[in-house]
């Protein structure tokens, strides 16, 4: 069994000095928390996770990308204020802005000790020019194609990847199709039963 994630995070910080490791809680029904690691130390952390005898995460089953857009969360708080000399409770909304970023998620298992998954994440600085994270191929060879796919579909650049080319789309393709703000070529065609998003496009193309 893997130790609770905060214990594991502490062990990582002891083993890799200077590493920033953060537990990302997950309040969805999956309830599967993960570790956010910083890209500067990701390779050393990965090596530690693989080589440490009590962890031995020797298998990275899956590498996925996530696109997080800029978001604004509004929280309402009740504040006491003095209005016209009378104390009243007033609702105030506080806006917290979170700039967008891209995320790469690795699912790790140990074939040897039969435990897992451990989920680690790397984040880019933003969604534009700060789009670099560390490639973990030198630790898990099987990440090669999957990191290429994340590069292709999300535009995350992996430092240290020996062969970072597009894999599903062609060289010369400019977009990253899995990004949430990807604009498809305008090639909608008639469908007899359009619905949801496709219904909107159907109305644009076939107004009658």
């Amino acid at each position: 069994m893997i130790a609770p994630l905060d214990t594991l995070a502490r062990r990582i910080q002891e083993a890799v000095p200077g590493a920033r490791v953060e537990v990302v809680p997950n309040d969805s029904p999956a309830a599967q928390p993960s570790l956010l690691v910083d890209s500067a130390h990701a390779l050393a952390i990965a090596r530690f996770l693989r080589d440490e005898p009590s962890l031995r995460f020797d298998y990275a089953s899956n590498v996925a990308g996530v696109d997080w857009l800029d978001s604004v969360t509004k929280t309402k708080t009740k504040v006491k204020k003095i209005v016209d000399g009378v104390e009243k409770e007033v609702e105030e909304t506080v806006e917290t802005k979170r700039p967008g970023y891209l995320e790469v998620v690795y699912h790790l298992y140990s074939m040897n000790l039969k435990h897992g998954p451990l989920i680690i994440r790397q984040r880019t600085g933003n969604r534009a020019e700060l789009n670099r994270v560390a490639s973990l191929i030198s630790v898990w060879r099987g990440c090669e194609f999957q990191e290429r796919e994340v590069y292709d579909l999300y535009g995350v650049v992996f430092d240290g990847h020996p062969d970072l080319r597009r894999i599903l789309m062609w060289e010369g393709f400019k977009d990253h199709p899995m990004r949430k703000d990807y604009v498809q070529p305008d090639d909608f065609e008639y469908e007899p039963t359009p619905h949801d998003e496709v219904l909107g496009r159907a109305k644009e193309h076939y107004p009658k």
Binding site: G172, K174, P185
Partner: peptide, 10 residues
């Protein structure tokens, strides 16, 4: 041909 956003011509 492979274009920047789609096949050319589509």
């Amino acid at each position: 041909q492979f274009g920047e956003h789609d096949l050319v011509p589509s």
